[in-house]
Nucleic acid binder design. Structure first.
Lengths: 339, 339
DNA sequence: CCGAGTCTTTGAGACGATTCAAAAGAATCT
DNA sequence: AGATTCTTTTGAATCGTCTCAAAGACTCGG
């Protein structure tokens, strides 16, 4: 209730509001004695600067919005932590928003962030075409796309998902698999589409000797992975793939659970490889092979690009940063299959 | 750049700023024809309402801060999702802040939130005594403590951690364990202290027949769990506990990994039970027994209490809501040990 | 003691939306 | 037509802070 303002502080310290403002923002230009008086008044009143008014006057905010596809996926949490670490050093704040794969929620979050006049937005869009994102950019909010296609309209950081898919596919083929399933999500998500394209090209390179099955689901969750796993486990052995490449580790974990509950052994009966290499992948029932992405680095780089654009809007040139994924082989795909 | 304001809209629509504001806030009191003209102007200019100015004038914000101990712990992510679901229905926004167990970071986040004049704060404090939190409350920001002690100064929601510890201890004792280790964190964290007290009381109830070892670490992470696990695995079998109760599932997962890498079988050589029952617990190398907490409900209830306090500050009475934890038995503690 | 520099402090506008008393305009009734 | 009521619209004041031109206070050399 008793929220004090600069004017009350000025009164108590017997100075003008301008001086109080100076003490707050450029203390070095205020005479030490005055400065001291003002500090005392601030402490006595319990004054806390109203960032809202400051922001209104100054015109730019110190917070950055980060809109992710799924907060319950540790991959995005790690990206967020990377971004936050950098923001901290620039006394900015990252507000984390969860679109949960829903374009409607995504849009509401973007609207809110724009209304708050955030400094900028980092986003992993739900869909490849997002007209309102482009309008938002056109109206002047800097945006950096995270782990997503580069449209040239803004900066982006991404990991080469096509390459990741290719590496995963090549690895399974090298291990002797000839019947591989891609367990994916909506192909409207660029990452999913690229990983799929990657594994497809690896299969194509194997000269027709390898068969690629595809199973998709609306979301990339543990539950969906388990559901697809159930269906696969129910197939007669001859029709079943011998390996599954899951679009992310969450699905892979669910898929793995389904195998276990149906008494199928991993990797003997079916090998699994996931994507992202989240920390929980190594702790799974069968430690999960995965395609590793530099998660924190992704977040750090994204906000670096944003801060760069904000600092020098004039001479800023949009850039596309692309990282390489790595293959991490664990037990779930360790076995070499006899042909 | 081209960020339009209400005045430009008014000009284009040939009305006063007051009318534009009315269209935005109480469209029903504006004549349909005028309303239409204003909407057109808004669309043509790409006007987006400046929430900062609005907030300054109106005095209350529509965002709630949620400060958690560890964003990388899915438990807190689930709490956050519960809170966000409710916030959504009240077109409010939850901003998630991570104290990462560091009182300094916690304080910085609280300062920032107070400066932003958020509607209120939900927090799982790092330490039991947090003087600046009390000052913040005294200055008028409503606070709800989440999963934390009730001081009477504000509302709180929690799960009975003592009971949870007791249930976990009783379960292990019932399974025949006589040498149990509590794998905990800093006892300055109330949850840890309570879970410890709970298991201690369960041991005491067993009439001296059971020995309780304690191992603590500075943080409740997978890495710390693994480190303690390494030390335990290195002990001669006779000195080793036969069961470990970990202060949360993250530590339990780390502990489990250490067992596996030292060739110790779970639950045969050593049983494990965790706390929180995060989704990944069931997907672990050995599915993890755990004490389940109503995670989303915790978040929902917390923000409900906050909204209630904000809506009627006068007649609001602070309340302490306490939920009961449940025991979930999985393979990691399923075995009955022969005495 | 004066004038030219330095330091400090002042205070009147912004910033963009909301509010609300009052004015203007329309409709109804006598 | 004039009085009365109801509906719409207006625009000045306000929220709390920052900015910046200008005033005031000091210092110092001549």
């Amino acid at each position: 209730m008793a929220t004090r303002n600069i004017k009350e502080v000025a009164q108590l310290a017997r100075v003008s509001v301008g001086t109080v403002s100076n003490v707050l923002n450029r203390p070095e230009i205020v005479a030490p004695a005055t400065r001291e008086r003002v500090f005392e008044a601030i402490k006595k009143l319990g004054f806390v600067r109203n960032e809202v008014a400051r922001h209104l006057r100054v015109g730019r905010s110190r917070t950055v919005g980060l809109v992710v596809l799924d907060v319950s996926n540790p991959f995005f949490v790690d990206v967020a932590q990377g971004a936050e670490a950098v923001a901290d050093d620039h006394d900015s704040m990252v507000v984390l928003c969860n679109s949960a794969g829903d374009p409607g929620r995504e849009r509401r979050h973007l609207d809110q962030l724009e209304q708050q006049r955030v400094m900028g937005i980092l986003i992993t869009p739900v869909e490849m075409e997002t007209p309102w994102l482009e309008e938002l950019v056109a109206r002047g909010t800097p945006v950096v796309l995270v782990d997503s296609p580069a449209t040239g309209l803004q900066c982006s950081v991404a990991v080469d998902d096509r390459l990741g898919g290719q590496i995963a596919g090549a690895h399974l083929i090298e291990r002797g698999h000839r019947r591989i399933m891609f367990v994916g999500g909506p192909s409207s998500i660029k990452q999913v589409a690229d990983r799929h394209a990657g594994v497809t090209s690896a299969v194509a390179a194997a000269d027709g000797a390898v068969e690629l099955l595809v199973s998709t689901s609306p979301t990339l969750t543990v539950a969906e992975g388990r559901a697809i796993g159930e269906r696969v486990a129910a197939l007669p052995a001859a029709e079943r793939p011998t390996a599954a490449f899951c679009a992310n580790d969450m699905m892979a974990l669910g898929f793995l659970q389904a195998m276990a509950s149906h008494g199928l052994r991993v990797p003997e009966d079916l090998a699994i490889i996931g994507y992202d290499d989240i920390d929980f992948a190594a702790a799974a029932a069968v430690p999960l092979s995965s395609i590793r992405q530099p998660r924190e680095l992704l977040g750090r780089t994204a906000i670096d690009l944003l801060l760069e654009e904000v600092a020098e809007p004039e001479q800023h040139r949009h850039r596309q940063v692309i990282f390489q994924p790595d293959l991490v082989i664990r037990e779930s795909s360790a076995l070499r299959r006899e042909l």
